[in-house]
């Protein structure tokens, strides 16, 4: 056999042997089984120094790694160091918005630690003055997960105070006021949005909210007066106008569109023409 053939045989044998060893190695590792992982990261400031002028790249790589890491569901303790990871990334590049947004989303939604998510968003808001998105997200987490409408309103107030804040922040704020059972203030806020609306979506949204709030205030009052009427006259009123004639209401309230509420004289029920179930608490 020539030398060249010997070398070819040696190369092929080496590759086969390596493939065999890889197969043996794979049999000892459970790649997709449940496992634990520990993250060791230097502090953000140290990494900023050690990045030697490539801090954006380091932050990007860490962020991309974190997305992959926190999407690996078979790592059971993956959330142990999540705050440290996102603190480090945001220490390296405090202006990078995505780590705050995605990090807090993972913290609130996956790790179910809303206070931790709020801490990260607070940091984002502190280090990026004039940016509304962090306060908006924090407000949403308070609203969605903590059901703390007062705190959510505070965040939305802060978000709305930023010059570039979109109109829907104002709408969200008014909705939160409504959710914390302050219909009077909520009506004022929605009226303000309704009157100053520059697009149909905002106007329609404000209209629907105003309709809902007015119906929620009027209907219980009307139901109460119908019961009172029945107690007094031993029969149901034939129409809602009977309540006014009997002096139980000064005038019969109408819905926000100006239409009468729907009254069924046979059973004495009163309802609004439109019901927004999606706005229920």
């Amino acid at each position: 056999m020539t030398r060249r053939r010997w070398l070819a045989v040696a190369a092929l044998s080496g590759l086969l042997l390596a493939a065999g060893m890889q197969q043996r190695y794979d049999s000892t590792v459970d790649y997709f089984g449940e496992r634990s992982a520990f993250v060791s990261l230097p502090p953000g400031k140290t990494l900023r120094i050690l990045s030697f002028g490539y801090r954006n790249l380091v932050a990007d790589m860490l962020f991309i790694w974190s997305i992959q890491f926190y999407s690996t569901y078979n790592i059971r303790n993956r959330f142990d160091f999540i705050e440290r990871v996102y603190d480090t990334i945001t220490d390296i590049t405090p202006e990078y918005k995505e780590p705050y947004i995605i990090g807090s989303l993972i913290m609130a939604h996956e790790a179910q630690d809303v206070p931790m998510a709020l801490r990260l968003l607070d940091k984002g808001s502190r280090l990026n003055p004039g940016e509304w998105i962090f306060d908006h997200d924090a407000g949403f987490y308070c609203y969605k997960y903590l059901k703390d409408y007062t705190k959510a309103e505070e965040y939305y107030n802060r978000a709305a105070a930023n010059p570039g804040a979109p109109v829907f922040i104002k709408r969200m704020k008014a909705h939160l006021v409504y959710l914390r059972d302050d219909p009077e203030v909520a009506t004022r806020m929605w009226l303000d949005i309704y009157r100053s609306a520059e697009d149909t979506l905002t106007r329609d949204s404000a209209f629907n909210h105003l309709y809902q709030i007015k119906a929620e205030t009027d209907l219980p009052l009307l139901r109460e007066r119908i019961v009172e009427y029945q107690r007094r006259y031993r029969r149901l009123p034939a129409a809602l106008s009977d309540l006014a004639r009997a002096g139980l209401v000064r005038e019969v309230p109408r819905d926000f569109s100006g239409n009468e509420y729907i009254y069924d004289p046979a059973v004495g029920t009163v309802t609004a023409q439109r019901i927004f179930r999606w706005k229920k608490r």
């Binding site: 002028g53 954006n56 790249l57 962020f63 997305i67 995505e98």
Partner: peptide, 24 residues
């Protein structure tokens, strides 16, 4: 390719990685 792996502003990652490569 790197920008495909991120969430959010992919253009930022593209510029970061590209400029870092050219710099290096």
């Amino acid at each position: 390719l790197v920008s495909f792996l991120t969430l959010g502003d992919a253009m930022k990652v593209l510029k970061d990685t590209g400029l870092a490569a050219i710099n290096f």
